[in-house]
């Protein structure tokens, strides 16, 4: 008995020390100090700010706008991440609004009903939410969405041209939302170059199962694919699989994924929300609080194709991609979502 008591005391000590040592080196999460009434922006996101995908795209855009405006003194950003539980997100949105934030962003399509209810109670506050197109007829609500199929198409054009094996693999989570529209656009892009190329799709049924996503990518590679793409925060596993193989190319979406495999990521479709955020801020200065839907498109620079400098993209492929971008912008090419 004595022995076990000693052990138990030890175990507690070990855990405490683990906590201590691990957090000791932690960088300080400096709370933003309010000086001369900065613009206050709050954002509620379903996944982590570091997901290399949907949530990160919004958070980076906010930080970029903040930097442009002159730092924390001019613009305060508060965020709540991993709010995949809708009632929690609703509570967060309401709290931020009642704390007097100027702009409250609900960055998840599941937050619609909450936004609709809360926005009515805070007519002075600007609300923005997405991805969806519905502003509920309220004058202080913006909706936003991304025409992911457009960048998907451009990625598809490039993928078809760089593929040697004429076989392309798509690793998706669940066939909904922009995971679906991106991939539909991608398939159309491939077909526009060479209809004989086979595009095989796998769905893991989960937005977070990295292990299965990795294996899905490896399966595509074993089946002969030499180009991969995919969507959701779990595709980091697919990129890892491509990197391990060393000769398989990757096309990214949502965030710039080049940092994960700098030799193999050809290009990424990046959601750039910063123009939209700046527009919302400018509108607010003029007294307009909402009632508009933003669609990120190539045309309005909300969607950007970032070519990875580390990958040596043949000139004719890049030219074809740029032609596709121009075609979509001008309306000469239409991509069905």
């Amino acid at each position: 008995m004595k022995n076990s008591k000693l052990l138990s005391v030890l175990s507690v000590l070990v855990v405490v020390m683990m906590l201590l040592s691990a957090c000791g080196t932690a960088a300080p999460a400096a709370p933003a100090e309010e000086a001369a009434k900065p613009l206050r922006v709050a954002v509620v996101m379903p996944s982590a700010t570091t997901d290399m995908a949907f949530s990160q795209s919004m958070y980076s855009a906010l930080v970029a706008v903040q930097k442009e405006m002159g730092g924390e003194a001019k613009m305060e950003i508060k965020y709540s991440e991993n709010m995949f539980k809708v009632p929690d997100a609703a509570a967060a949105l309401r709290d931020y609004a009642s704390q007097g934030f100027d702009i409250v962003i609900g960055h998840g399509s599941q937050y619609g009903a909450s936004i609709e209810e809360i926005a009515k109670d805070f007519p002075e506050t600007v609300f923005a939410w997405g991805t969806d197109v519905n502003t509920f007829g309220l004058p202080n609500v913006y909706a936003y969405t991304a025409a992911a199929q457009e960048g998907g198409y451009v990625n598809g054009v490039m993928a078809a041209m760089v593929s040697q094996s004429k076989q392309i693999g798509v690793t998706g989570p669940v066939e909904v939302g922009d995971a679906k529209t991106y991939i539909d656009g991608f398939v159309q892009g491939v077909a526009s170059v060479d209809p004989s190329i086979t595009v095989n799709k796998t769905w893991t049924g989960s937005f977070s199962d990295v292990a299965l996503m990795t294996e899905a990518a490896k399966t595509h590679i074993a089946a002969g694919a030499d180009v991969l793409t995919g969507s959701s925060q779990s595709v980091v596993g697919s990129i890892g699989a491509a990197k391990e193989n060393g000769a398989v190319m990757w096309f990214g979406t949502q965030s710039d994924q080049a940092s994960l495999a700098d030799k193999l990521v050809v290009a990424s479709q990046v959601y750039d929300w910063s123009a939209m955020i700046k527009q919302i801020i400018a509108n607010k200065a003029e007294g307009k609080l909402g009632g508009e839907t933003f669609v990120l498109q190539l045309k309005n620079d909300g969607l950007k194709i970032t070519f990875n400098a580390g990958y040596n993209l043949p000139a004719e492929v890049k030219a074809a991609a740029e032609a596709a971008i121009e075609g979509i912008k001008s309306g000469a090419i239409t991509v069905e979502p």
């Binding site: 299965l212 294996e215 399966t219």
Partner: peptide, 22 residues
């Protein structure tokens, strides 16, 4: 079975992906 269902999807066998994952 998990590997099998991934291969089924890659080979384009016509079953819903959700059923395959199940």
């Amino acid at each position: 079975v998990n590997a099998f269902q991934l291969w089924m999807q890659v080979l384009g066998v016509d079953i819903p992906s959700d059923v395959a994952v199940m």
